[in-house]
């Protein structure tokens, strides 16, 4: 779960994820050749945009269904979240 705690400015960051569940050899995970990744399950900004402007495709970051690759740095597994708009919410999961 990702919430932008800033009410007026977009925020981005790398976010730690569970190392065991998101390892390349994690049990029960259907990674393909691309390796571990998380899927966007919900995006509050997208939900509003699509309701407010029906018919227009959402063009912002992290649309629902997009894959966010799990990376590794200094022994930690993480995902990169870009430009989450103010007070918006993104839910990531390892299963759709």
């Amino acid at each position: 779960m990702i919430v932008n705690g800033h009410g007026e400015q977009p925020r981005g960051a790398d976010v730690i994820v569970d190392a065991a569940l998101n390892a390349p050899d994690a049990a029960g995970q259907p990674w393909g050749d691309a390796g571990p990744s998380l899927i966007v399950l919900a995006n509050s900004f997208q939900a509003f945009e699509e309701a407010d402007r029906p018919g227009l495709p959402y063009a912002g970051p992290h649309p629902v269904g997009a894959m966010v690759p799990v990376r590794m740095r200094d022994g930690a597994r993480y995902v990169s979240l870009l430009e989450v708009p103010p007070s918006e919410v993104i839910v990531l999961g390892n299963r759709a």
Binding site: M1, G5, D14, L21, D74, A76, R95
Partner: peptide, 26 residues
Amino acid sequence: ISILGRAFTDAPPGELIAWSRILDEE
């Protein structure tokens, strides 16, 4: 979280708030 490639730290106020829920393998 890590901002602009710096070391991972607990999130300060006004940045991304991040947490996980884990149940079995999900």
